[in-house]
Amino acid sequence: MGGSHARSLASLDEVDLVWLVDVDLPRAEALAAEIGGKATASMEEAFSDPSIDAVLVALPTFLHREAVVLAAKHGKHVFSEKPIARTAEDGRIMIDACREAGVTFMVGHVVRFYHEYSSIKRELDAGTLGQVATVRSYRISPPVMQSRPWFADLEKSGGLVLDLLIHELDTLRWYFGEPKRIFAHGLSYSPIQKKRDFVTVSLRFHSGVIAHVEASWAHATFRTGIEVAGQKGLINYSSDDSSTLRLERTKDIELDKGRIPAIVHMRPSNHRPHLIEVQHFAQCLKSGEPVLVNGEEGLKALEMSLAVLDSVRTGQPIEFDADGQRITA
């Protein structure tokens, strides 16, 4: 995500991209040559620069804490890619460090900046569906284990649940408030997890809403969707159904009898949620307005995700109190 975020920042009038930090210095130098900024392999060097106001962290999850705490110590505002951290303890330390330093801390739950999900939030808040009964949301992806091994490493990243499923949990908590009970099935602790992972979650919210969430690293194509059913009606969004461009590959199809053709649904768009997200962060720093996803919000989404992993592992439901604090040990 770092390269993508850097390009977003470089394109914004209100932002000067000063440093690009990467332990892989040639990678940082190559990007700097393309979009501007100075390259370094040292966070200390960049963060101690008095000319910078803020830091964007796109490190692997298990390294978030070190970078965010260091940025806070240097008095810099921080945007961290999601999930906030690998453990709730790390997340709490990061929040405390930012609060003590008096800096703003935002976690990059970008789904809140996708127009379909923010529009659904608007409809729900307007009461369009009346009381919501049940929700299904999903985030389906091809396996990533071979191309990005650290993503699949449960210890370092939290795997499918902390990388992908967390988007749905943050979004549903944004819509429906604190969870009451979480129960999950999944492959995260099975031997097949090195190759495929798939998780289904039953959620009960204190508001009464029942939700089913599905995340996959076991499908052939990427897609997302959400269906919300309420007393007054139903909202259904699916990225496949919303595609505006479809590619059917036919190259060599005559020579490859029996092969299932690859059909790719696409939705080319000028809507750029990742850009809107970092722009929101920059504008909040300028205006003093609160960010949409602060550290506490990021930590709550992480705690829900950790509950999913624990339920997958133990086969037991995990309970939360009305403030979203976990009750089940």
Binding site: A133, T134, G186, T200, I210, H212, A229, L234
Partner: peptide, 27 residues
Amino acid sequence: DTGLLMLRLANGLKVSLDTSWSRPASW
């Protein structure tokens, strides 16, 4: 009118099953 079941099968497979009458009258 709303139900979500999480099942374990004897063969080890796990299943989620939504049984809800979630379709509006206009569906």
